[in-house]
């Protein structure tokens, strides 16, 4: 036995087709339906959502800075938390429909690290997603931070806190925190799109966007909730 030679030559056009069709298997975070892509929002909307998100992010940065001034070692821990959020959102989740989908992970983040910190970490995560995965955008960053970094974590955290007060089992708390955080993110995104393209009215447009994205997002939210239950079960057993 020796070295084997011979390799098929692939034409450029075949190569192109192959690159485009296989990128999803090699590239994390190919397609999620929840981040508004670059160029999708008119200038007033892009600016408006950035202004709306800014106070939360600034508050998050302040909270984070205060925390690491007191505990310098938390710098690495918080970075690990952010990296975890990014990785989770870049992983392909099992899906019912067969289309690939990614968890938002903001529900778990909100429970583990609290919403203010998540506002800051999510901003960095979204910036990384825009620049490392061409996922989301820069002019749409404010809108995406609002839906994924603010609305999602607060709704998730709210559900978690309310169910905790009601003494619901941990599994139930986690399921609803994760699922509702995901749902809230997608509903806010639908609302943002409806506001930008109110055709003919914001209400009708919201119903339209919400319905179309619901096809992928509702099963996804349920699965994300179930994944959360497994996640916290494993964490508790360690």
């Amino acid at each position: 036995m020796g070295i084997r030679h011979g390799r098929a030559t692939v034409s450029q056009s075949q190569e192109l087709v192959r690159v485009i069709t296989t990128i999803g298997t090699r590239h994390p975070g190919k397609d999620s339906a929840v981040h508004i892509a670059e160029g999708f929002l008119p200038v007033p909307h892009a600016v408006g959502w950035a202004v709306a998100a800014a106070p939360f992010v600034v508050h998050g940065v302040r909270a984070t800075v205060r925390q690491v001034r007191e505990h310098p070692e938390d710098r690495v821990l918080l970075a690990a938390a952010g990296a975890f959020t990014f990785i989770l959102s870049a992983l392909k989740m099992p899906s019912v429909t067969g289309s690939s989908s990614h968890p938002t992970g903001t529900g778990a983040g909100a429970i583990l690290f609290r919403p203010p910190v998540m506002a800051f970490l999510s901003t960095v995560v979204l910036l990384f997603q825009a620049l490392l995965l061409a996922h989301g955008g820069l002019t749409t960053l404010g809108a995406n931070v609002f839906s994924m970094g603010i609305a999602g974590p607060w709704v998730g955290y709210g559900a978690y806190a309310a169910l905790r007060r009601l003494r619901a089992p941990l599994e139930v708390q986690v399921f609803f925190a994760m699922a509702l955080a995901d749902l809230a993110t997608y509903l806010v995104t639908s609302f943002q799109l409806a506001l930008a393209y109110p055709d003919p009215s914001v209400g009708a447009a919201f119903a339209k966007f919400a319905t179309i994205f619901a096809l992928t997002q509702v099963p996804l939210a349920v699965i994300e909730g179930l994944v959360g239950v497994v996640l916290f079960r494993v964490l508790r057993s360690i």
Partner: peptide, 21 residues
């Protein structure tokens, strides 16, 4: 394995026609 090729875009081809038993 026969005529196995594999690679990543960023690193070029890692395996370039490999046959093993």
């Amino acid at each position: 394995a026969e005529g196995l090729t594999a690679g990543y875009r960023s690193r070029g081809r890692v395996l370039d026609g490999i046959g093993v038993t």
